[in-house]
């Protein structure tokens, strides 16, 4: 599967002029961004900002009205089936079959992703995510934290080169959430995978992300490394930056000339 002409090998994800309308509502309004291979990029924005629609288009579940997406150099959704073998996804808003045991679920998904030496891979993930105590329990009987660990194990079954995470630590207690973040950091360090993370948890974004894309009303409102955003907005935390963007407010001393990438250009 040769890469599409014009794609840049430095980027795992290239989004160009992406537009999606639902009737009269423009959910995504001409956004463009790239995700450098091997980095973690945060996709931030309030409710209705266009995060879920963007992730849906990146996974080929929603067809864009205009623009293009290239993942690992290949067209999405044009080469969707082949690309999805190299990607994976995790969200607390999607469950695994409740009446199947954890091991059965991992077996089914491992076969869907055609994972080689599947039993060994499952054993490895069971050890990595500490699933041993409930691997033969039905998925519907697990706690929220256990379910998240299983969902992450499923998301890493095929050792994805691109991993999309939609609020991976939502509804987890701080200890479990911290543990999950540690596992994600370890996975990225071990495999060099690219991660796109949609989250409302600003400390999580600050800890994990190399780059941040902030969406507002379907447009990219700002982007940059966490430290750059803090400096430019004159804030101490990303949560304050997020509120500034959402409310259109600025701190005294914020750099007024560097708000949007388009403005910079």
């Amino acid at each position: 599967m040769p890469a599409a002409p014009g794609s840049d090998p430095r980027f795992a994800i290239e989004v160009r002029d992406l537009v999606k309308r639902f009737g009269a509502v423009t959910a995504v309004d001409g956004i463009a961004f790239e995700v450098v291979r091997g980095t973690v990029t945060g996709l931030l924005g309030g409710n209705g900002a266009g995060k879920t629609t963007t992730i849906g288009m990146l996974m080929g579940l929603i067809l864009p009205d205009a623009g293009s997406i290239r993942i690992l150099g290949h067209d999405m959704p044009g080469e969707r089936a082949a690309l999805l073998e190299r990607m994976n996804f995790e969200s607390p808003y999607v469950d695994m079959p409740h009446r199947l045991t954890v091991r059965q679920n991992l077996t089914v998904f491992g076969r869907l992703y055609r994972v080689e030496r599947l039993k060994d891979r499952i054993a490895e993930l069971v050890a990595d995510f500490d699933l041993g105590a409930f691997v033969d329990r039905k998925a519907g009987q697990l706690s929220a934290g256990q379910k998240t660990r299983v969902a992450l194990a499923k998301a890493l079954l095929n050792t994805p080169e691109v991993l999309l995470l939609d609020e991976p630590t939502a509804s987890l207690d701080p200890d479990t959430a911290d543990w999950v973040r540690g596992r994600l950091e370890a996975y990225r360090a071990k495999t060099g995978a690219t991660i796109l993370l949609a989250s409302h948890n600003m400390p999580e974004v600050e800890r994990l992300c190399d780059d941040i894309v902030i969406l507002r009303r379907g447009r990219i409102e700002d982007r940059g490394a966490p430290a750059d955003l803090l400096r430019r907005y004159g804030r101490d935390t990303l949560e304050e930056v997020f509120l500034d963007v959402a409310r259109g407010t600025r701190a005294e001393g914020a750099d007024p000339g560097l708000r949007r990438e388009e403005d910079e250009a």
């Binding site: 996974m59 579940l61 089936a81 082949a82 999805l84 073998e85 990607m87 994976n88 996804f89 969200s91 808003y93 999607v94 695994m96 998904f109 869907l112 992703y113 055609r114 499923k154």
Partner: peptide
């Protein structure tokens, strides 16, 4: 369904 539709 989401897991399946986002699988190969």
């Amino acid at each position: 369904l989401g897991n399946l539709l986002m699988s190969p």
